[in-house]
């Protein structure tokens, strides 16, 4: 299983490395860059929700935390964003451990609402931040940037390195590298004894506990690991756009990512990536009727939760199993 996954991953990786040399437009490159970031967040969210069974709605808080942390380190300490990025990632891990300690022993619905409330509190604290933290010339700037967002913390230096024309390539490959690492982590966790332990916990909690499997310890581990990649994604987002705002905490964005995970297939290795791709393409195709976007997303969530709770990956798996069985019975007869 793990070899097959790695092979699939390498094929995708090779295609993604070759693609920019076929001369796509800058718009396409930027959209693909965003795809890498969202797919990273969704694969990590899938580890938390689909594998460890924690219905957290915190991913975008962690993403925002990573972005703001990187930006603040760049702005207030004037360190390079390349140094700020790993620190932001580790900071996000610490932040996620705090959230985890508060909610990992709770039942599903409580986790969902508590993490949503945390996201809302962070959002409110940022947009109501009006106190002067420092003076930028004649204007007053807030600690978090407030409604205007955090800016002027520098970038990754791709403009100097690759020039005005090709600097987006720098972001593209940074995002790709992150997604590759995040996917590798996801494959390892799902196919490793850790993934099996979670499966055991799901299938037979009493037996698993008697085998000394501590649900809480493993959940915290997965929660923290996924926070690391999510925080990095936030940092890279901040570095690319040179401004970090509370719009990353909008509910609509969170639900867009939730749809990616649910439509793709909760709990599987490739489902979340597939879901991210499908939703971004659909979104692109429906640009003309953008006002119906949210209604369509909502409908998609309802339908998948009702009829295909395992997502496209689950449906494909079912078809595959059925074909195999039919093939086997034919061979036998």
């Amino acid at each position: 299983m793990i070899r097959r996954d790695l092979a699939i991953g390498l094929i995708f990786l090779a295609c993604a490395i070759a693609l920019p040399f076929l001369g796509p437009s800058r718009y396409v490159i930027t959209q693909l860059f965003l795809f890498f970031l969202w797919a990273t967040v969704v694969t990590q969210w899938n580890l938390v929700f689909g594998v460890a069974g924690i219905f957290s709605l915190a991913p975008m808080v962690l993403f925002a935390f990573g972005g703001y942390a990187a930006g603040m380190i760049g702005l207030y300490l004037e360190w390079s964003l390349w140094v700020a990025l790993p620190i932001a990632g580790l900071g996000t891990v610490l932040f996620s451990l705090l959230i985890g300690l508060a909610c990992l022993r709770l039942r599903g619905a409580y986790v969902a609402l508590l993490t949503l409330a945390i996201a809302q509190v962070v959002y409110l604290l940022i947009i109501t931040d009006t106190e002067c933290f420092f003076m930028d010339g004649m204007t007053c700037r807030n600690f978090t940037g407030g409604t205007r967002g955090l800016a002027k913390y520098g970038d990754f230096g791709f403009r100097d390195l690759l020039g005005r024309q090709d600097w987006v390539m720098g972001s593209y490959f940074t995002g790709l590298a992150l997604l590759a690492l995040a996917t590798l982590a996801s494959i390892i966790i799902i196919r490793s004894p850790l993934g099996l332990a979670f499966q055991a916990l799901r299938d037979n909690p009493a037996y698993a506990v008697s085998q000394g499997i501590s649900r809480f310890k493993y959940q915290l581990l997965v929660f923290a690991l996924s926070a690391f990649f999510t925080g990095l994604a936030g940092g890279i987002y901040a570095g690319h756009f040179s401004v970090m705002g509370a719009n990353t905490l909008y509910l609509s964005l969170l639900l867009f990512l939730l749809s990616m995970m649910v439509v793709g297939g909760v709990g599987s290795v490739w489902g979340p990536l597939l879901g991210a791709a499908v939703l971004m393409l659909t979104d692109e195709a429906l640009k003309e009727v953008i006002e119906y976007r949210s209604i369509g997303l909502g409908l998609l969530l309802v339908l998948f939760a009702m009829f295909w709770p395992k997502g496209i990956a689950g449906v494909l798996n079912g078809v595959n199993e059925r074909l195999k069985r039919r093939f086997r019975s034919r061979v036998r007869s």
Partner: peptide, 14 residues
């Protein structure tokens, strides 16, 4: 318990 949360999130959005 979880599927209904997802379905009602979608419904709320609609």
């Amino acid at each position: 318990e979880t599927n209904v949360i997802i379905a009602t999130i979608g419904l709320a959005m609609m």
